[in-house]
């Protein structure tokens, strides 16, 4: 009986202490959303199936015709272009004819000389073909166009930067949408539109390759 009373007193004391401490403290923070590691694994698996950033960069550079191989080829061709000559071909023809007739007034009364006494017909033709070739061998040593090709690097770099940035912005957005989706429906909708916009931009920058590739790999 005593032990039962003791237990009751202890229980009441414990409840009072708890209540007092709860009144003195601020309310506990809302629980953090539990991260589902399965979602993370699934997301990583999806990323592995998608085109890599290197593939996207290569597709964009190819679409804009500024891939490193092509720019290298421009360099090579610019430095070797002096081997091919400037060619000029010209053809000139000349044709002359003359018909000489001498009418002698002393013999004009005679019918056989009425049309003329002497006849002479001359015909000449000539043709002149010439071909000129011009090599500027000095340009084999230095050609300023080689440096001109290097200025393509600005376009190359800005394309690479844009594609890389869009590619990872897309991934970040996907990660946030999957792992910690916005609670506000309006925000969720806006983020969805932003993802579509980034997809469209990547698609445009790669000349439609990105969408085709996603479809080929059966990624929604």
């Amino acid at each position: 009986m005593v032990s039962l009373r003791m237990a009751l007193v202890l229980f009441l004391v414990a409840v009072m202490v708890q209540t007092a401490s709860a009144q003195g403290q601020p309310p506990p923070p809302p629980p953090k959303p539990q991260l589902n590691l399965k979602v993370l694994r699934k997301l990583r698996f999806q990323f592995e199936r998608e085109p890599t950033v290197e593939e996207c960069q290569a597709a964009a550079l190819k679409f804009f015709r500024i891939s490193p191989a092509r720019v290298g080829s421009y360099h090579r061709r610019a430095s070797l272009k002096a081997l091919a000559p400037d060619i000029n071909v010209s053809v000139y023809t000349d044709r002359n004819s003359s018909d000489r007739r001498l009418v002698d007034m002393l013999y004009v009364s005679s019918p056989q000389f009425a049309n003329g006494k002497d006849f002479e017909y001359t015909n000449s033709s000539s043709m002149n073909m010439s071909i000129q070739a011009h090599w500027g061998f000095d340009r084999l040593v230095f050609n300023s166009e080689v440096l001109d090709v290097s200025s393509l690097v600005g376009l190359q770099e800005s394309t690479l930067r844009e594609v890389t940035s869009l590619y990872f912005t897309r991934r970040r957005l996907m990660a946030i949408l999957k792992m910690n989706p916005p609670q506000d429906p309006g925000e969720k909708f806006t983020e969805g539109i932003r993802l579509l916009e980034i997809d469209a931009n990547l698609n445009a920058l790669t000349g439609g390759w990105f969408k085709k590739e996603l479809k080929k790999r059966q990624i929604k």
Binding site: P85, Y92, D94, S124, S125, S126, M127, N128, M129, S130, I131, Q132, A133, H134, W135, G136, F137, D138
Partner: peptide, 11 residues
């Protein structure tokens, strides 16, 4: 700088 000029002219 090399200039090569060939000319042929029949008449």
């Amino acid at each position: 700088t090399l200039k090569l000029k060939a000319n042929y002219g029949p008449s």
